[in-house]
Protein backbone atom coordinates (compact mmCIF):
# COMPACT_ATOMS: atom_id res chain seq x y z
CA UNK A 1 0.00 0.00 0.00
CA UNK A 2 1.50 3.31 -1.05
CA UNK A 3 1.44 6.50 0.99
CA UNK A 4 -0.88 9.36 -0.01
CA UNK A 5 0.73 11.58 -2.66
CA UNK A 6 1.96 15.06 -1.76
CA UNK A 7 -0.36 17.98 -2.44
CA UNK A 8 1.28 19.06 -5.69
CA UNK A 9 1.53 15.52 -7.06
CA UNK A 10 -2.14 15.12 -6.16
CA UNK A 11 -3.10 18.25 -8.07
CA UNK A 12 -1.09 17.00 -11.05
CA UNK A 13 -2.89 13.67 -10.99
CA UNK A 14 -6.29 15.28 -10.60
CA UNK A 15 -5.60 17.61 -13.51
CA UNK A 16 -4.43 14.68 -15.65
CA UNK A 17 -7.54 12.74 -14.68
CA UNK A 18 -9.81 15.61 -15.71
CA UNK A 19 -8.04 16.06 -19.03
CA UNK A 20 -8.00 12.32 -19.76
CA UNK A 21 -11.69 11.99 -18.96
CA UNK A 22 -12.47 14.89 -21.27
CA UNK A 23 -10.28 13.69 -24.12
CA UNK A 24 -11.88 10.26 -24.05
CA UNK A 25 -15.04 11.99 -25.17
CA UNK A 26 -13.65 14.33 -27.86
CA UNK A 27 -17.10 15.43 -28.98
CA UNK A 28 -17.73 16.88 -25.53
CA UNK A 29 -14.54 18.94 -25.90
CA UNK A 30 -15.56 20.09 -29.35
CA UNK A 31 -19.09 21.06 -28.28
CA UNK A 32 -18.20 24.55 -27.00
CA UNK A 33 -16.22 25.19 -30.17
CA UNK A 34 -19.11 24.07 -32.35
CA UNK A 35 -21.43 26.25 -30.29
CA UNK A 36 -19.03 29.15 -30.88
CA UNK A 37 -19.04 28.51 -34.64
CA UNK A 38 -22.82 28.16 -34.82
CA UNK A 39 -23.54 31.37 -32.95
CA UNK A 40 -20.97 33.28 -35.04
CA UNK A 41 -22.94 32.14 -38.09
CA UNK A 42 -26.16 33.53 -36.56
CA UNK A 43 -24.92 37.10 -36.33
CA UNK A 44 -24.50 37.85 -40.05
CA UNK A 45 -27.98 36.39 -40.55
CA UNK A 46 -29.43 38.63 -37.86
CA UNK A 47 -27.43 41.80 -38.44
CA UNK A 48 -27.01 41.61 -42.21
CA UNK A 49 -23.79 40.61 -43.99
CA UNK A 50 -22.35 44.14 -44.50
CA UNK A 51 -18.62 43.61 -43.77
CA UNK A 52 -17.92 46.96 -42.09
CA UNK A 53 -20.86 46.62 -39.72
CA UNK A 54 -19.85 43.11 -38.76
CA UNK A 55 -16.30 44.31 -38.17
CA UNK A 56 -17.56 47.04 -35.84
CA UNK A 57 -19.61 44.57 -33.80
CA UNK A 58 -17.07 41.73 -33.97
CA UNK A 59 -15.26 42.38 -30.64
CA UNK A 60 -18.52 42.36 -28.69
CA UNK A 61 -19.97 39.43 -30.64
CA UNK A 62 -16.91 37.24 -30.16
CA UNK A 63 -16.64 38.06 -26.49
CA UNK A 64 -20.31 37.45 -25.75
CA UNK A 65 -20.18 34.07 -27.49
CA UNK A 66 -17.06 33.12 -25.54
CA UNK A 67 -18.94 34.11 -22.37
CA UNK A 68 -21.94 31.93 -23.21
CA UNK A 69 -19.82 28.98 -24.32
CA UNK A 70 -17.98 29.20 -21.02
CA UNK A 71 -21.22 29.42 -19.05
CA UNK A 72 -22.75 26.39 -20.75
CA UNK A 73 -19.69 24.24 -20.16
CA UNK A 74 -19.21 25.45 -16.57
CA UNK A 75 -22.59 24.01 -15.66
CA UNK A 76 -21.32 20.48 -16.41
CA UNK A 77 -18.02 20.92 -14.56
CA UNK A 78 -18.89 19.10 -11.32
CA UNK A 79 -22.03 17.28 -12.42
CA UNK A 80 -20.78 13.78 -13.29
CA UNK A 81 -18.40 13.68 -10.33
CA UNK A 82 -21.24 14.81 -8.09
CA UNK A 83 -23.54 12.09 -9.40
CA UNK A 84 -21.11 9.19 -9.14
CA UNK A 85 -19.89 10.20 -5.68
CA UNK A 86 -16.27 10.95 -6.52
CA UNK A 87 -16.77 14.57 -5.48
CA UNK A 88 -17.76 13.40 -2.02
CA UNK A 89 -14.60 11.27 -1.87
CA UNK A 90 -12.59 14.33 -2.85
CA UNK A 91 -14.08 16.36 0.01
CA UNK A 92 -13.34 13.52 2.44
CA UNK A 93 -9.75 13.11 1.27
CA UNK A 94 -6.97 14.70 3.35
CA UNK A 95 -5.80 16.76 0.36
CA UNK A 96 -6.39 20.54 0.60
CA UNK A 97 -9.69 21.35 -1.08
CA UNK A 98 -8.28 24.63 -2.37
CA UNK A 99 -5.78 22.81 -4.60
CA UNK A 100 -8.25 20.15 -5.76
CA UNK A 101 -10.68 22.84 -6.82
CA UNK A 102 -7.84 24.64 -8.58
CA UNK A 103 -7.19 21.49 -10.63
CA UNK A 104 -10.83 21.29 -11.70
CA UNK A 105 -10.96 24.94 -12.75
CA UNK A 106 -7.61 24.73 -14.52
CA UNK A 107 -8.81 21.74 -16.52
CA UNK A 108 -11.99 23.61 -17.44
CA UNK A 109 -9.99 26.64 -18.53
CA UNK A 110 -7.60 24.57 -20.66
CA UNK A 111 -10.45 22.70 -22.34
CA UNK A 112 -12.73 25.66 -23.07
CA UNK A 113 -11.02 29.03 -22.63
CA UNK A 114 -7.64 28.22 -24.12
CA UNK A 115 -9.17 26.25 -26.99
CA UNK A 116 -11.61 29.07 -27.69
CA UNK A 117 -8.80 31.63 -27.66
CA UNK A 118 -6.82 29.46 -30.06
CA UNK A 119 -9.67 29.09 -32.53
CA UNK A 120 -11.14 32.60 -32.15
CA UNK A 121 -8.91 34.25 -34.84
CA UNK A 122 -10.57 32.04 -37.47
CA UNK A 123 -14.03 33.31 -36.59
CA UNK A 124 -12.72 36.83 -36.13
CA UNK A 125 -11.54 36.83 -39.73
CA UNK A 126 -14.93 35.47 -40.81
CA UNK A 127 -16.52 38.47 -39.08
CA UNK A 128 -14.08 40.79 -40.87
CA UNK A 129 -12.17 41.83 -37.78
CA UNK A 130 -8.90 43.44 -39.00
CA UNK A 131 -5.85 41.24 -38.52
CA UNK A 132 -4.19 43.96 -36.40
CA UNK A 133 -6.72 43.31 -33.63
CA UNK A 134 -6.15 39.56 -33.50
CA UNK A 135 -3.33 39.52 -30.89
CA UNK A 136 -5.50 41.61 -28.56
CA UNK A 137 -8.41 39.22 -29.11
CA UNK A 138 -6.35 36.11 -28.34
CA UNK A 139 -4.60 37.70 -25.36
CA UNK A 140 -7.78 39.06 -23.82
CA UNK A 141 -9.62 35.76 -24.35
CA UNK A 142 -6.76 33.78 -22.78
CA UNK A 143 -6.75 35.87 -19.61
CA UNK A 144 -10.47 36.65 -19.51
CA UNK A 145 -11.72 33.08 -19.90
CA UNK A 146 -9.60 32.16 -16.89
CA UNK A 147 -11.62 34.59 -14.76
CA UNK A 148 -14.81 33.26 -16.35
CA UNK A 149 -13.85 29.69 -15.44
CA UNK A 150 -13.36 30.62 -11.80
CA UNK A 151 -16.58 32.61 -11.55
CA UNK A 152 -18.55 30.02 -13.50
CA UNK A 153 -17.24 27.30 -11.18
CA UNK A 154 -18.59 29.22 -8.18
CA UNK A 155 -22.02 29.16 -9.79
CA UNK A 156 -21.61 25.51 -10.75
CA UNK A 157 -20.58 24.51 -7.23
CA UNK A 158 -23.66 26.18 -5.74
CA UNK A 159 -26.10 24.64 -8.23
CA UNK A 160 -24.61 21.19 -8.85
CA UNK A 161 -27.05 19.50 -6.48
CA UNK A 162 -30.13 21.11 -8.00
CA UNK A 163 -32.17 19.41 -10.67
CA UNK A 164 -32.84 22.52 -12.72
CA UNK A 165 -29.56 24.36 -12.41
CA UNK A 166 -29.27 25.49 -16.02
CA UNK A 167 -31.11 28.79 -16.08
CA UNK A 168 -30.27 29.50 -12.46
CA UNK A 169 -26.52 29.39 -13.00
CA UNK A 170 -26.90 31.98 -15.77
CA UNK A 171 -28.75 34.32 -13.41
CA UNK A 172 -26.17 33.81 -10.67
CA UNK A 173 -23.04 34.09 -12.76
CA UNK A 174 -23.70 36.51 -15.62
CA UNK A 175 -23.63 39.66 -13.43
CA UNK A 176 -20.11 38.67 -12.35
CA UNK A 177 -19.08 38.08 -15.98
CA UNK A 178 -19.82 41.69 -16.89
CA UNK A 179 -16.50 43.30 -15.85
CA UNK A 180 -14.62 40.68 -17.86
CA UNK A 181 -16.79 41.39 -20.87
CA UNK A 182 -16.19 45.13 -20.55
CA UNK A 183 -12.41 44.85 -20.36
CA UNK A 184 -12.16 41.96 -22.84
CA UNK A 185 -14.21 43.62 -25.56
CA UNK A 186 -12.54 46.92 -24.62
CA UNK A 187 -9.11 45.46 -25.35
CA UNK A 188 -10.16 44.39 -28.86
CA UNK A 189 -11.91 47.69 -29.55
CA UNK A 190 -8.85 49.53 -28.28
CA UNK A 191 -6.68 47.55 -30.68
CA UNK A 192 -9.08 48.44 -33.52
CA UNK A 193 -8.76 52.12 -32.66
CA UNK A 194 -4.99 51.91 -32.42
CA UNK A 195 -4.90 52.45 -28.66
CA UNK A 196 -2.50 50.56 -26.37
CA UNK A 197 -3.91 47.19 -25.35
CA UNK A 198 -1.58 46.52 -22.43
CA UNK A 199 -3.69 48.33 -19.77
CA UNK A 200 -6.73 46.20 -20.59
CA UNK A 201 -4.69 43.02 -20.50
CA UNK A 202 -3.13 44.13 -17.22
CA UNK A 203 -6.57 44.58 -15.66
CA UNK A 204 -7.72 41.20 -16.98
CA UNK A 205 -4.55 39.65 -15.59
CA UNK A 206 -5.23 41.29 -12.23
CA UNK A 207 -8.80 39.95 -12.24
CA UNK A 208 -7.44 36.51 -13.14
CA UNK A 209 -4.98 36.39 -10.26
CA UNK A 210 -7.61 37.80 -7.89
CA UNK A 211 -10.10 35.13 -8.97
CA UNK A 212 -7.45 32.41 -8.67
CA UNK A 213 -6.55 33.57 -5.16
CA UNK A 214 -10.06 33.86 -3.71
CA UNK A 215 -12.31 31.88 -6.06
CA UNK A 216 -11.35 28.38 -4.86
CA UNK A 217 -12.48 29.23 -1.31
CA UNK A 218 -15.96 30.11 -2.56
CA UNK A 219 -16.02 27.07 -4.85
CA UNK A 220 -14.96 24.80 -2.00
CA UNK A 221 -17.64 26.24 0.29
CA UNK A 222 -20.22 25.82 -2.48
CA UNK A 223 -19.25 22.18 -3.03
CA UNK A 224 -19.52 21.41 0.69
CA UNK A 225 -23.00 22.97 0.79
CA UNK A 226 -24.10 21.04 -2.29
CA UNK A 227 -22.82 17.74 -0.88
CA UNK A 228 -24.55 18.37 2.46
CA UNK A 229 -27.88 19.38 0.92
Amino acid sequence: MSAAPGALAFVGRLLRRQLTLALRRPVAVLNPLLFFAMVVALFPLGLGPAPDRLAAFAPGILWIIALLANLLSAEMLFRSDFEDGSLEQLLLSPQPLYLSVLAYVLAHWLLTGVLLAAIAPLFAVMLNLPVAALPALVGSLLLGTGVLSFVGSIGASLTVGLRRGGMLIALLVLPFYMPVLIFGAGAVEGALAGLPVAPYLAILGALFSFAAALGPFAIGAGLRISIDA
Binding site: G165, L168, F176, P179, A218, I225, A229
Partner: peptide, 26 residues
Protein backbone atom coordinates in the same frame (compact mmCIF):
# COMPACT_ATOMS: atom_id res chain seq x y z
CA UNK B 1 -33.84 32.47 -7.01
CA UNK B 2 -31.04 30.41 -5.47
CA UNK B 3 -32.86 30.28 -2.13
CA UNK B 4 -36.05 29.13 -3.79
CA UNK B 5 -34.24 26.47 -5.84
CA UNK B 6 -33.03 24.51 -2.79
CA UNK B 7 -35.44 22.13 -1.08
CA UNK B 8 -33.19 21.94 1.98
CA UNK B 9 -33.63 25.41 3.46
CA UNK B 10 -30.59 25.19 5.76
CA UNK B 11 -28.39 24.54 2.73
CA UNK B 12 -30.25 27.27 0.83
CA UNK B 13 -29.31 29.79 3.51
CA UNK B 14 -25.65 28.84 3.37
CA UNK B 15 -25.55 28.83 -0.43
CA UNK B 16 -27.09 32.31 -0.51
CA UNK B 17 -24.61 33.48 2.12
CA UNK B 18 -21.69 32.34 -0.07
CA UNK B 19 -23.26 33.97 -3.11
CA UNK B 20 -23.85 37.29 -1.38
CA UNK B 21 -20.30 37.27 -0.01
CA UNK B 22 -18.92 36.70 -3.51
CA UNK B 23 -21.14 39.61 -4.50
CA UNK B 24 -19.61 41.97 -1.92
CA UNK B 25 -16.18 41.33 -3.39
CA UNK B 26 -17.51 41.86 -6.87
Amino acid sequence: ALYEAYDNKAAAGRACAVLSLVGTVN
